[in-house]
């Protein structure tokens, strides 16, 4: 499947910005089932500096700086991505590995890939927490397979948390999300990661896009798609297997991966600092369209 993605972010500043630095994480990854055919990031006004690099996690980061006064900033990322069905989920489905064994394997250092170890540890948005552990506990019965554990956890989160924008921000602690029982996709993702890590299992955060279809009989609206976030769990001998707790489904070919990290902090699409005294408004539009 080939997708054309257009992700537009616009900032309007109340006061002139004299200098602005931004770190963009907008270029889709190329990985087993996904090929980023092309990606162009257009910025206006044209920044004075643009530097691409690969970060610790293997994501593509674009650093931009503007030293000319400006009162708005537009960032358009346009990419073409080919996606095949994810096979890891199928392999995981038929895997009998027990969650307890994976946990013990992780705890016994050295057996696992050193890189995977960090995804069992707390991170900025994903703390160790008794409350969260208690919430997750019943999904991981003795003798349950890792696959079943993850499935029932995803199901539990999906049915316990109501998808409702406007109640949380990027800085809402995941324990509060559990208390509020409301949130958006990154809250779902953070909560599921927190549950897994509190159970001693390696889990990471995936940032990307998802293709949506209009209600039957209606035209798809321009800019109606959005950035999305979901979860990947490490299965020994298989690799990372993805789960989308916001939608209670297994990502196949409709989820386009931009970046991996421990949590949102590592892969925020746009992070910036502006030298200005006033406030700002932001608007984001995303279109994900199939190219036949």
């Amino acid at each position: 499947m080939r997708y054309k993605i257009k992700h537009i972010t616009e900032y309007h500043y109340q006061e002139t910005v004299s200098t602005g630095h931004n770190r963009l994480c907008l270029v889709p990854l190329t990985r087993d089932h996904q090929l980023c055919v092309s990606c162009e990031v257009k910025i206006s006004p044209t920044p004075d500096e643009q530097v691409y690099r690969t970060d610790f996690f293997g994501n593509t980061i674009l650093f931009i700086s503007s030293y000319k006064e400006h009162s708005q900033l537009e960032i358009i990322s346009e990419s073409i991505v080919d996606i095949q069905n994810r096979v890891n989920a199928d392999r995981a489905f038929s895997s009998y590995v027990l969650w307890d064994d994976v946990k013990n394997q992780v705890a016994k250092q050295g057996d696992l890939n050193a890189d995977v170890a960090q995804y069992t540890l707390p991170s900025l948005h994903v703390p160790y927490s008794e409350v969260i552990k208690n919430f997750a506990q019943d999904c991981f019965a003795d003798g349950a397979t890792l696959w079943n554990g993850c499935q029932s956890l995803m199901q539990k989160i999906y049915s316990s948390i109501e998808f409702k924008p406007g109640f949380t921000t990027v800085n809402t602690p995941v324990e509060s999300v559990l208390k509020l029982r409301k949130g958006v996709c990154q809250d779902f993702a953070h909560l599921m990661i927190a549950c897994l890590r509190n159970m001693g299992l390696p889990a990471r955060y995936v940032s990307g896009y998802i293709e949506t279809l209009p209600p039957a009989g209606k035209e798809k609206l321009v800019g109606s798609d959005a950035s999305h976030a979901w979860v990947a769990v490490y299965f020994p001998d298989i690799g990372w297997v993805e789960f989308d707790p916001t939608n209670n489904l297994l990502p196949s070919y409709k989820h386009i991966t931009v970046a991996f990290g421990r949590d949102y902090f590592d892969v925020a699409p746009i992070k910036g600092i502006i030298f200005s005294s006033g406030g700002q408004t932001i608007s984001v539009k995303v279109d994900v369209n199939r190219v036949e």
């Binding site: 949380t168 921000t169 990027v170 990154q186 959005a226 600092i273 030298f275 200005s276």
Partner: peptide
């Protein structure tokens, strides 16, 4: 004086 660029208050998406 500098401040952080705002981030969209949560990614708002559900299928």
């Amino acid at each position: 004086t500098y401040s952080h660029q705002n981030t969209k208050e949560g990614f708002q998406f559900e299928v």
